[in-house]
């Protein structure tokens, strides 16, 4: 049973995550995005970007491991192995670029149990190393409540 006292809490900010060009290329390839600004540095700069541009949902590649670390914390009591993703939203204050150093703060916004499922809403506030907001994500995660 997940610990409802976590609702409303904010976890300590993560260590900075450095966005690598090869990670942007790997992620873009995984989702079938072959656009030049994700792969070709010269093309990205020619288009006015400081470095490679990450696809819009690239942040999943570092926020999900950060979320997983929290969800595997036995104190919280979440069944990670049966988890599926529900609603998700992302607000981009600016695109993520290669070389960005990004700090995530996870907020536990909501936790409820309905129809045999635990439903957890986590919000990730991601800022650059100057403290400027880069993006906000909200993720609804669902796992089966323990049966029998």
């Amino acid at each position: 049973m997940p610990d409802e006292s976590y609702v409303g809490r904010q976890l300590p900010p993560t260590e900075p995550y450095q966005v690598g060009r090869e990670k942007i290329r790997e992620f873009a390839t995984a989702i079938g995005d072959d656009s030049a600004v994700c792969h070709d540095l010269a093309a990205a700069r020619a288009a006015g970007h400081p470095d490679l541009v990450a696809p819009p949902t690239f942040s999943v590649s570092f926020t999900m491991p950060q979320i997983e670390a929290f969800l595997r914390d036995p104190d919280f009591g979440w069944d990670y192995s049966r988890m599926v993703h529900g609603d998700q939203s992302i607000t981009l204050h600016r695109p993520i670029h290669g070389g960005d150093e990004l700090v995530t703060t996870i907020h536990v916004d909501d936790l409820r149990t309905r129809a045999g499922s635990h439903m957890l809403t986590l919000r990730c506030e991601v800022a650059d190393n100057a403290g400027e907001p880069v993006l906000t994500t909200k993720t609804l995660l669902v796992t089966q409540a323990a049966s029998a």
């Binding site: 990670k23 790997e26 992620f27 590649s61 999900m64 997983e68 990670y80 192995s81 599926v84």
Partner: peptide, 13 residues
């Protein structure tokens, strides 16, 4: 599988 690697989410499902 490629996406699992890209986002490091190897949930067995």
């Amino acid at each position: 599988a490629r996406y699992a690697g890209a986002v490091n989410d190897f949930n067995p499902v």
